[in-house]
């Protein structure tokens, strides 16, 4: 398994109040597999993804195990954690405009991991960046590299973010609502690019979304999360028909049929 989360529990204490956010979460993603994680807003999806890169507050109490490519993340040494973050798993955030430093040029952000983390020379990093921009379907990549985030559209920026995520040649992508902030057409384009890259490179993808249609259409397997717990695991094709758990059914019944509410995706969670 590429990613294996086993009985992960996470509790955050703020102002003396303990708050269990994850309760015995177990899930896995294999190489070349797209796995969905769905659930309502606040159910703990993002927290799960962030835990994979050990991005939780120092004050969090964490229990269980997470392995990425065989490395135990929760107890990893600094070097091991650094390797996981820089070249094994990459996160794609929901809002591309927020995920890029507004004061730095696209090229600078795109190559930051290569230059400043992996120690690649600027010239090589720029060449790799250009190649990746082309791979995510950006035309005139040289010009884009010199622009600032505010000069690009949201869809364009999300492609940049995806390209940036691929700079370390990761095997695992953690896409946290990666297309939720985009309009429907752009969303479809970006998803198509992501799918192509995934198959070409044999990536494992953990696709977090609250769009059940998307999950059903796009994922091999789907986990349903509710209040910090995984309540059900289904094959993507079975999502709309095979649900056993009460929560999943409620979730599904709340979803309009495709075409009725084209904008439901843009409601951020």
């Amino acid at each position: 398994m590429l990613l294996d989360i086993d009985n992960l529990s996470l509790t955050i204490t703020t102002n003396g109040l303990s708050h269990q956010i994850l309760d015995q979460v177990s899930l896995s993603v294999d190489a070349g597999e797209v796995v969905g994680l769905v659930g309502e807003s606040g159910s703990g999806k993002s927290t799960t993804a962030r835990a994979v890169l050990r991005l939780y507050p120092e004050t969090a109490a964490v229990d269980g195990s997470i392995t990425v490519g065989g490395t135990e993340v929760l107890s990893a040494s600094r070097d091991e954690l650094h390797r996981v973050r820089s070249s094994e798993a990459a996160m794609i955030h929901q809002d591309p405009r927020a995920a890029l430093n507004p004061l730095r040029r696209i090229g600078d952000s795109l190559t930051e991991r290569l230059v400043h983390v992996l120690g690649v020379s600027r010239a090589d990093a720029a060449a790799a960046g250009l190649e990746l921009l082309a791979a995510v379907g950006i035309r005139q990549p040289e010009e884009r590299m010199r622009q600032y985030p505010h000069e690009l559209s949201g869809g364009m920026l999300q492609r940049v973010v995806i390209a940036a995520a691929l700079t370390g040649q990761p095997k695992l992508l953690l896409a946290d609502e990666a297309t939720s902030a985009l309009d429907v057409t752009t969303q479809a384009e970006v998803l198509a690019i992501l799918r192509d890259l995934q198959t070409q490179r044999g990536l494992g993808v953990l696709l977090i979304t609250h769009d059940l249609h998307l999950a059903a259409a796009y994922c091999h397997r789907v986990y349903v999360m509710y209040r910090g717990q995984i309540v059900e695991e289904l094959r993507g094709n079975d999502l709309f028909h095979g649900a056993q758990h009460e929560y999943t059914r409620r979730l599904l019944s709340a979803v309009p049929a495709i075409g009725h509410l084209p904008n439901s995706e843009s409601r951020a969670s």
């Binding site: 954690l81 990459a90 995920a99 507004p102 930051e112 983390v117």
Partner: peptide, 24 residues
């Protein structure tokens, strides 16, 4: 978000502060 994004790909804390926090 961009600070966390940079942290998520392993940018060293000192560089993170310099390039993403102080600069901005």
């Amino acid at each position: 978000d961009h600070v966390e994004a940079a942290r998520s790909f392993g940018l060293a804390p000192a560089k993170l502060i310099r390039r993403h926090v102080l600069r901005n």
